[in-house]
Simulated assay, not measured.
Amino acid sequence: MKRFLSLKSLSRTVHINDHEEHGQDQDDDHDHQCQRKYDDDDQKDVVGRVANCTTSLTVWRKSLVMSCNGFTVIDSHGNLIYRVDNYIGRPEEIILMDGSGSSVLTMRRHKKLGLVDSWLVYEGEIGDHLQYCKLNTSGSSRSSRSKRPIFCIRKNINLLINAKSNVLAYVYRDTSDKSCAYVIEGSYTHRSCKVLDGCTKKVLAETRRKEEIVGGVSYGVEVFHLIVHPGFDPGFAMALVLLLDQMFS
């Protein structure tokens, strides 16, 4: 509980200082109204919803569960929005949950692509669903009831020596799709990444490192911002952060 309260305080401090540093005083009222509308909505509407205005989230690479590694994500008012608790080592499956613990998205490693680190993203939780498929001996029933992934994320591999590319990963809508829906560029090590539309190259979401010292303690790369621009799903943006962490940590 003390850990969560300190993060709530940090989120408010970072959010206020960010506006001061970027000279966004004129946009404060608009951002506050957008954020207040976002926070006042029912939790069911917030999770998995496309943002209608810029959403600023604080990501902490810590779990609220003492025995687990994970992530905690809160908004600028300290409200718990997303959490990940099943994050130890290199898991085969990662579940992104909302603040109440309900599954939002499930990410599973895709093992059919050799050396390429890739993941499939599913809506909700798929454990019980796949267990049903295994117990069902009918091939047609298994096919009709199996849950299909909504996205496939593949790590960019530079095979050329001294190749310079800031592309981290490609996001596809299907495992057989050859045209990427989104491109992720930047450096996850420095928490400076951008999610771009695959066609227009418009920035849809981005992470920003915050060099903030609170109470004499520097949070380094363990605490950073996730900025989600209008028209992009904050939940999916957070899922991409989790996969970047797997690929580049």
Rank of each mutant, 00 (worst) to 15 (best):
K2L: 10
R3M: 13
F4P: 01
F4L: 15
K8A: 04
V14C: 05
D18M: 03
E21I: 15
Q26D: 15
Q26E: 14
Q26H: 13
H32E: 11
Q35P: 00
K37Q: 14
Y38I: 06
R49T: 13
V50M: 14
A51T: 10
T58Y: 01
T58W: 00
V59Y: 03
W60F: 11
R61S: 15
K62L: 05
S67F: 12
C68A: 07
G70N: 01
V73F: 01
S76Q: 07
G78Q: 02
N79V: 04
L80H: 08
L80R: 07
L80D: 09
D98T: 00
G99M: 01
G101T: 08
S102T: 12
M107C: 15
L113T: 14
V116K: 10
V116N: 09
S118L: 04
L120P: 01
L120I: 07
V121Y: 01
H129T: 14
Y132M: 13
Y132V: 15
L135Q: 13
T137V: 10
S146L: 06
R148M: 12
P149E: 08
P149H: 14
F151H: 12
I157Y: 03
I157Q: 03
L159S: 05
L159V: 00
L160W: 06
A163P: 02
K164I: 15
N166R: 06
A169T: 10
Y170N: 13
V171K: 00
D174M: 04
K178C: 12
V183Q: 09
S192R: 13
K194L: 03
C199H: 07
C199V: 07
T200H: 08
K202C: 03
E206H: 01
E206K: 10
T207E: 02
R208A: 12
R208P: 00
K210Y: 06
E211V: 12
V214S: 09
G215M: 05
G215Q: 05
S218P: 03
S218T: 11
Y219P: 00
F224G: 13
F224K: 10
I227H: 04
V228K: 12
G231A: 15
F232A: 09
D233I: 04
G235L: 06
L240R: 02
V241R: 05
L243S: 02
M247P: 08
S249D: 10
